[in-house]
Amino acid sequence: MFRSRRAGLVRRLWRHRCAGPGPEDGPGALKPAAHALFKKLKDEELELLVQAVESRGAGPSGCVWVARAEQRGTKQALPPQVLLCRLYRWPDLRHPHELKRLSCCQSFGGWGGCGEGATLCCNPHHLSRLAMPETPPPPYSKISPFGCPWAEVSERPISSHLESGCDAHGDWRDPGLAWSSTRDGCWCKLAYWEHRTRVGRLYAVHETSVNIFCELPQGSGFSLGQLQAERRSAAVRRARSKIGRGLLLSRERDGVWAYNRSEHPIFVSSPTLGPPGARGPPVRKVLPGYSLQVFDYERAGGQAGWRRPGDGPYDPNSIRISFAKGWGPCYSRQFITACPCWLEILLTKPR
């Protein structure tokens, strides 16, 4: 690549950085580290990074590889993925364990990240931020205090692997294996609701992940924008306008995860989000760009169904997600059926 072309890409990257610095950063504090990293990227990877940053993750983008050894050095104290996520997504990010890699990334699950000198993807839009509990916790919080604060699988110490279902040799004991071994390969079905009315047919999911969206420039999945209804209230139309890129739902080793790709919060309720013996499933708020484990396979056994007055029976193997609007004791909407737009995820129970 001509030097002027490469310099132009670097200028475009620097121009798209987040406006607000982190609490410990003065203006331009990350510039030396960022430019040092840009110099180490190959030409094609620099172009991929520009594409991902300028599209803000709207479409699929390739992995941006950097050697793990580059994470240490005098000019760059931050790991590359943390540096780029601070520049382009979350200026207050501090540690790689606050991040969760998305299933679309080739570094997901350890690919490209094992061994000394191995490469690691640092595309900031191949990462999400783990939803963390608020302090003090309100009646609803962004993650269950009983959940595991997952870090990136490929970056966790051996002790953490042991605690999360990995033996001493690094081999996974997959608690989700039974959930994925269904007869027809369909691990869940999606139902879209507007208040108390289901709109469209059930959508069967066979791939390990699925996009659920109204407006997604590139990609495939469950398009809510194509579902037609005879009458839509103003509240439903307003809520649908906020779905945008929607969410990414993925079946992983430890359970089902939801990544909020939209520009508005989503609200999630699941039997495995609350403590054992709870009177009903809690509601958790997931901010844009954050991920939450919405169903835990290991905790799913022995869950009984609930019934709340006015809300109908609750399937212990289902997840409910409302777009932009919460419900429960802290809201005027007591039940999810009062939410304008919501999704029901019906998990296929293992035989």
Rank of each mutant, 00 (worst) to 15 (best):
R5K: 15
R6K: 07
V10L: 04
R15W: 13
A19M: 15
A19Q: 15
G22P: 01
L30S: 08
K31Y: 14
A33D: 00
A33I: 00
Q51P: 10
A52M: 09
E54W: 02
A58S: 06
V64I: 08
G73Q: 06
T74Y: 14
A77D: 11
W90F: 05
W90M: 02
P91Y: 14
C105W: 09
W111F: 12
G112E: 03
G115W: 01
G115H: 00
G117L: 02
T119D: 03
T119K: 07
C121H: 05
C122W: 01
L127D: 02
R129C: 06
A131H: 09
E134M: 12
P137L: 02
P138A: 00
Y140H: 11
I143A: 15
I143V: 15
G147E: 07
C148F: 15
A151R: 13
V153N: 12
S159G: 08
E163Q: 07
E163F: 12
C166W: 15
A168N: 09
H169Q: 11
G170M: 15
D171F: 13
W172I: 14
W179K: 00
S181Y: 07
L190A: 14
W193K: 11
R198T: 07
V199N: 05
R201W: 09
L202N: 02
H206A: 13
S209L: 10
F213M: 00
P217Y: 12
G219T: 02
L227R: 13
R232Y: 01
A235T: 08
A239V: 10
G246Y: 00
L248V: 07
S250Y: 01
Y259W: 08
R261H: 12
E263Q: 13
I266E: 02
L273V: 06
G274L: 06
G274N: 01
G280S: 12
P282Q: 06
L287R: 09
G289F: 10
Y290I: 05
Y290W: 10
Y290L: 09
S291V: 11
Q293T: 01
F295H: 00
D296W: 09
Y297A: 06
G301V: 13
R307K: 09
P309R: 13
P309N: 08
D311S: 11
P313H: 07
P316R: 06
P316T: 00
P316L: 03
S322M: 07
F323S: 02
G328W: 13
C330F: 13
Y331E: 15
W342E: 08
L343T: 01
L343I: 03
E344R: 15
L346R: 12
R351A: 09
